[in-house]
Structures are given as C-alpha cells and as structure tokens.
Design a binder for these strands. Structure first.
Lengths: 214, 214
DNA sequence: GGGCAATCTTGTCAGTGTCAAGTTGTGGGG
DNA sequence: CCCCACAACTTGACACTGACAAGATTGCCC
C-alpha cells in the first residue's frame, strides 16, 4: 500500500489547457480533468489491477488537489462505474460492425486485449454502482449487439437452441479473453496471434456438417 | 470503505480452543487463528469481492488484535496467495476424479459455484505473490489434472490438435463459470441447473461426426 | 460588468496496512 | 520438575487512503 511520496512537486505533466495565460504556473482549472483522471486510471488498472487504484494518486498524476477527482466522479465506485460504462459503449460499437458470429468473437477478444482495464472492470460487479443509468444503458447496448451477432448465424440449422448458442459463444470468447489477460494461456498460445488461435476455437464450436449438405 | 465500528466488544465468536481453562475470558492463544481468518476472508470475498477485504476487520471477527493475522500470512497479499493456493489444491483434487473431459468441465463449473471466493482470487494474479512456492506447486497440480482430462479424450479422432482442444475446453468452462459468478447469465440460464446447461454447451464443442463412423 | 454555478483547494476524520517492540503462554530438553 | 526458547498474540506508531465540508477561484452568460 505504501507509495513513495517522492512526488511532492505538483508537476503539471499535462498541457494545462487550450487557452491559458502563458505565464500561469498551474491554472486553477485543469481544462479536461475528467478525461485526464480516466486515462490515468486506465493506465493504473491495466498495470496493477483495480485494487491498486487510488483517487489521491490519480489527482497527483493530473497535478490537482486530492479532492478534485471526486467532483467529477463522486467517489471511487463512481470512477469505476464510468470506466465500465465507457467500456460497454466501446464494446457495443465494435460488435455492431461484426460480419458474423465468429467475427464478433474475434472482436470480443481483440477488445479485451486492447482495453484490458475496461474489460476487467466491466466484469467485476462488486466494484460498480449497479443501478447507474449510463452503465445499464451501455451494457444493454452491448447485449443487443451480442444477440444480434448470434441471431445472424441461424443456428437452428445445427439443431441448437438459439439462446444456448449465444451462451456458448459468449462463454468461449469470454473465457479465452479472461485466461489470456490473466496470463494463463502464455504456454499454449505462445507467440502465435491470439486472435488467430481463437478463430480455430470458434470453428470447433460452430462447425457445420462435415461435408455435403450446404 | 467506512465500516460501522459497532463491533467494539471483542466478542470471541469462535470456540476459543479445544483445551482451555473454562473460566478464561479471551485466551491469549486463539487455537486456530489461521483457519479462522481464512474462512472469514472467504466469507467476505464471496459476499463483496477481494477489494472489500480488510485484515483489521478479519482480526475483529476472530476476536484478536489487529496485527494478529499478519503473523500467519505476513500481509494482505500473503493471505490472498494462501487462498489461491488452497483453491488450486481443491480444484486439482476434484479434476483428478473426473470421468472424462465433459465431466471435468462440469466439475470446473461446480467448483466455481461452490468456492466462488477461491475461484475469483485464483484468477486475479495482481493480488497474488506470483513466486510463492505453495501457490505455484498447487497451480501446477491443477494444470496437470486439466491436461490429464484433455488427453483422455483422444481428440485426434476429431482431427483437432490436442493442445488446442484443451484451450477450447478450458476457455468454455472458465468463461461460463466467470459469467455465471458475475451474474451475466441470470437471464439466459434462468432457474435451470447451470451444470446441466453447461453439459449442453460441452456437447456442442466436442461432438463426434453426426451419425455413422463410430 | 456582475453574479452565479462549475471547478478546484484546504482541512479534517475515521479507517487501513505494515512495521517494531513488548507480552504471554507452551512444549520440550535438562 | 523446571525453565527457557520460541511461537502466538498485543500494543503502539506512522504513512497512507476515501470521504466529507467549507472556502477560494474562475469562466461564462445575461
């Protein structure tokens, strides 16, 4: 828990704002503190997990006083909830562009690798304010996108209940992504491209009849 | 973060030990503090996640002084590492009794549901001391058990690389278990038995040729 | 230009992890 | 049987944290 405390000097570390008096040391208004805190938080979480996140540390990084972040996010839970909501929004938009179900799975895995902090927070409900409006709507959007990708595959042709096919696809992609992020597949996957490996797994799950019968 | 502080009275709350003087109020030696702290920690984590865990709170629950737990676990990370090691041990022993790969998957899901705190901690590496000996050996045991279940299925008959089959099975089971614990399958699964649902998913992944050709 | 609301600061409080140094009990060798 | 070394626990302290309240600063809109 102990941090170095060597960071006494405020150290602006961010371009203070678009239109500042050129000689102003540290402008009273940061300019875009909300975004600065968010991205700093994402850095910390990606590196050391959500438990390493400290509002005071984020404030120090942004060069503002210790209570400034709370004005934008209310409290720690609020910050994490904002991150999760943003994550679900990003996920929804990439899933909506998927060509088919396998592509959606690949995009799901890619999202987890490109936004590991978002991903981790999104699926840790005890860190979030469950009834937050932005969160619930963003999550619903992502859910719709997922269901859309599933329904496009016509799994009745495989004799499989549509609902279950969605759960299977989601489980496979989510499990692969999670194990990847927690470094549990470093051995098996090695230096191969994870997305390519996942494509093989997805083919195992949804393969059509062996030959004939289009 | 704020806790009630109504728990001022030490309140033994545990049978102090096997062989205590009958009139001793709070015996200096707890008797089995290590186990008491572990199970209290598992309760807290299962209810509110690892971030809600406080060594001082656990000490209060066990009726000992605030620094007592540290003597058994060194620090917070040590406690979580011990939990993870115990979890991998439990998982290994249940996987070793699996009849076949599908049964191993079912057991994996059952383990996650019966030991949600262990499961969550086991796959959150940033909370653990990665080089801990007990942890690494227990994890290796679980890995062996998993590989054993995979190799027993003879997936070459399906034309699939053995290694990949293992990753697929693990991903499916892990994803299903994770989504289950984070309440993301409450809708699709409903009040059905999750293990039964998972059996269906597993059948989708490893199904043999549609008919003839044993 | 004047006020007002958003933004940020300062100060404070209870709670936490961790370390160091002291107490208490217990089991094993003389 | 005793005593003593060591394990189990306590007490006290320090730096840190999230949260809240009250004040300071500033941009902006009428």
């Amino acid at each position: 828990m102990r941090r170095t405390l060597l960071t006494m000097t405020p150290a602006p570390a961010q371009q203070p704002s678009p239109h500042q008096k050129p000689s102003a040391r540290r402008p009273y208004h940061h300019g875009d503190l909300r975004r600065a805190v968010l991205t700093a938080a994402l850095d910390v979480i990606a590196a050391d997990g959500p438990s390493a996140l400290s509002l005071r540390d984020l404030a120090r990084r942004a060069g503002v006083s210790h209570a400034a972040p709370a004005h934008h996010f209310k409290d720690r839970t609020g910050l994490l909830t904002a991150i999760a909501a943003e994550g679900f929004g990003l996920l929804a938009s990439t899933l909506n562009e998927a060509a088919d179900l396998k592509d959606a799975g690949v995009r799901y895995v890619r999202f987890a690798r490109e936004h590991p902090a978002h991903f981790q927070v999104m699926f840790t409900p005890e860190l979030l304010r469950a009834d937050d409006l932005e969160l619930t709507t963003a999550r619903a959007l992502a859910g719709d996108a997922l269901r859309g990708a599933v329904s496009a595959v016509r799994p009745e042709s495989l004799g499989i209940d549509n609902r279950l096919a969605g759960v299977a696809a989601w489980s496979l992609a989510h499990g692969f992504a999670t194990l990847l992020l927690s470094h549990n597949l470093d051995g098996p996957v090695g230096d191969k491209d994870p997305e390519e490996v996942f494509r093989t797994l997805a083919a195992m799950l949804f393969r059509s009849e062996p030959r004939e019968n289009p």
